[in-house]
Structures are given as C-alpha cells and as structure tokens.
Amino acid sequence: MNYIKLTVTLHPFNQDASDLLMANLGEQGFESFMENENGFEAYIEESQYSTEIPDNLEMPIPGISIHHTLETIEKKNWNEEWEKHYFQPIVVADQCVVRSPFHHDYPQVPIEIVIEPKMSFGTGHHATTGMMMEYILENDMNNKVVLDMGCGTGILGILASIRGAKKVTAIDIDDWCTENCTENNHINNIHNMDVITGDASQLPKSEEFDVILANINRNILINDIATYSQCLKKGGLLLLSGFYTEDIPAIDAIAKKHQLKIKSSKENNNWASVAYEK
C-alpha cells in the first residue's frame, strides 16, 4: 500500500493558518502530519486520496498564499525518508528518550524507547504524542490493563508496558501501523501486547480496561467515546488527544454523557490532550 505525501508551503508562514489547514485535511482523511518552518507535509493512503483535495484547499487567513506539491511514497522508501530528513532523538519530560535504531548518540535518561519509523504515526515528535506520553509518565501504570487505540507505531502502549502495565491491547485500522507496532514491540522486548488490525468494533467484548489511550482525531473520538466508556472500568482513566483546544467543549459534552469526568488537560501549540476518569 502506497501513501500520497502532500507538501504544503505557506507564504508567509503563519502557525494558525497551518493548524487550520491541517485540521481541514484531517477531516478529509489525512492520517499524519510533519510540520516544518514553512508549512507541513500531510500523508494519506493512496486508495483514500482524491485529486480534488489540494484544489479545494482554501486559505483561512487573508494575505497568505498556498503552494503544494504531491508525491507517492512507497513503503520501501519510508525508512530512508525518515533517516535523511526527520527523526531525531527526543526526550519527554526528562524521563524518556525516543530514538531510532540508526541513532547512536542520544541523551541518557531512565526510559529508552526505540522506534523503527515507517509509515506510522507516533514517534513522540508531534505535540499530541508528546502530551500523551507525559500523561503515561505522570500516572500509575503498574499492573494496569491498557488499551492503545489508534496505536500507530505502538509508542504509547510500549511506554505503558515499560511503566508496568500488566497487559496492553493495541488496535489500529491501518495494517502498516499494526505491522510496525509488532516490529517495535520486538525491538523493545515487549511481550504483553496484543496487536489487532481494525477499529473500535474490534474491542474485546469480555474485557475491561484500567487505562484507555486514544490519540486519533476529533470526529473518530466523538464517535467512539461511548464504546470506550463501556470498556473502561469504574475509576478507570481515559486519555485523549489528536484534536485542537477549541474542540475540547465538543469532546467534553460527549464524555459527560457517558459517565466520564474531566480530570485535567494539556495544551501544546494549540493541540490538546485531556484526561478523564469514569
């Protein structure tokens, strides 16, 4: 399965305009984004791509022009792309370093996660992934049964396992992601994670979770919060991200209908992450 890479350049660059454009593309099926100093790159499965999408890009802020290019990314090229251009080691909350196998010089902190970067979302670089990792580091994972929904590379489930989770279930609709998640489990010696290809309908009917992690997008979260609540133990923790700060009221309204009470929220570059308790 190939991906389409849409590179968007803004003249002059404006962060608010860039965020709004990424949100618009997210609504149209783009799965992951990589920001840069002039704009961003957006990725979508080739089978989901419509040639009308870039033509319909509308600048939400006057006085800024848009330039875009398109490129087909083959699976075999993805590691090379990341190694050349993007993935540098990062440290989250001074406790966890995320690196790739090709990194040999990186900070030494208590927790190390190695991610083989392919066409999967979640290397810790995006604000949403970083905030979710912070929540995992801040909360007790010891002996918890954890769900990583929309797992991508598996980084959140891997961190939960390292932090002491008893069992992790990782689910993603994209087989690229579940393949990469399985590979990253092996690299990090994670042996207590079940990896499933599918959506929320694949959630085990007979199992309840202590912690549910869902870093996806606004519309999917709103649609699936009811299912998450059904699978979450009383007193359990639901950690959400993948949406903007202005989306919090819409997320919270649905959460309240399903016995979920907001505990705290985080914000980074207008991206939001929210912790709920059932």
Rank of each mutant, 00 (worst) to 15 (best):
A200V: 11
D105N: 13
P101N: 13
D175F: 15
T128Q: 00
K233F: 02
A93P: 07
V8A: 09
L238G: 01
K257H: 10
Y43V: 06
Y86K: 04
D94S: 10
N189L: 13
S161R: 08
T169A: 13
H258V: 10
D16W: 09
P54R: 04
D140Y: 04
A255R: 00
G152R: 07
K84W: 00
G39D: 06
W176Q: 12
M34G: 10
K84A: 07
L260V: 02
F209T: 00
K257W: 04
E58M: 11
N270M: 15
I158A: 02
D174A: 12
D174T: 13
N219C: 05
E35R: 14
H186Q: 13
I173S: 14
Y86P: 03
N188I: 09
S229D: 08
N269W: 14
H104D: 11
A226G: 01
G242Y: 06
Y49S: 07
S206P: 00
Q95F: 01
I136K: 01
I155E: 00
C181T: 15
L25C: 08
E138M: 11
S100G: 14
N38Y: 14
V98Q: 02
Y43K: 07
H125C: 08
S100K: 11
F243K: 05
Q88R: 13
H85Q: 00
L6A: 07
L232N: 04
D199P: 13
V8H: 05
E138K: 14
P249T: 02
Q15C: 12
N223V: 11
T182H: 09
I111T: 12
C181L: 12
V114Q: 04
Y244L: 12
D140V: 06
M132F: 03
N24C: 04
A214R: 04
T129K: 00
N185C: 15
A23C: 10
C151E: 03
G157R: 03
E52F: 06
P12K: 09
T197H: 13
H103I: 07
Y106H: 07
L237F: 01
H258F: 09
M133G: 04
I173D: 10
D140Q: 09
E183I: 12
A200E: 05
I90D: 07
A160S: 14
E179R: 15
N142T: 13
I212C: 06
K256G: 01
K166E: 15
V98F: 02
S265K: 11
W82E: 06
I155W: 00
I73H: 03
T245H: 08
I155G: 02
N79L: 13
Q15K: 14
M1T: 13
V97Y: 04
A226V: 07
E207G: 02
Q88L: 10
I262H: 00
D175M: 15
Y49H: 05
E46F: 12
L238K: 00
N192I: 15
S65N: 15
N192Y: 14
I162H: 08
T72D: 05
T51P: 01
Q88W: 07
F87R: 07
E246M: 11
S241D: 04
I251A: 00
E208V: 06
K234A: 11
Y106Q: 03
Y49F: 14
D224A: 14
I254Q: 01
D247T: 06
T153E: 03
Y43Q: 08
L239M: 10
T7P: 07
C177V: 11
P62Q: 12
E179P: 12
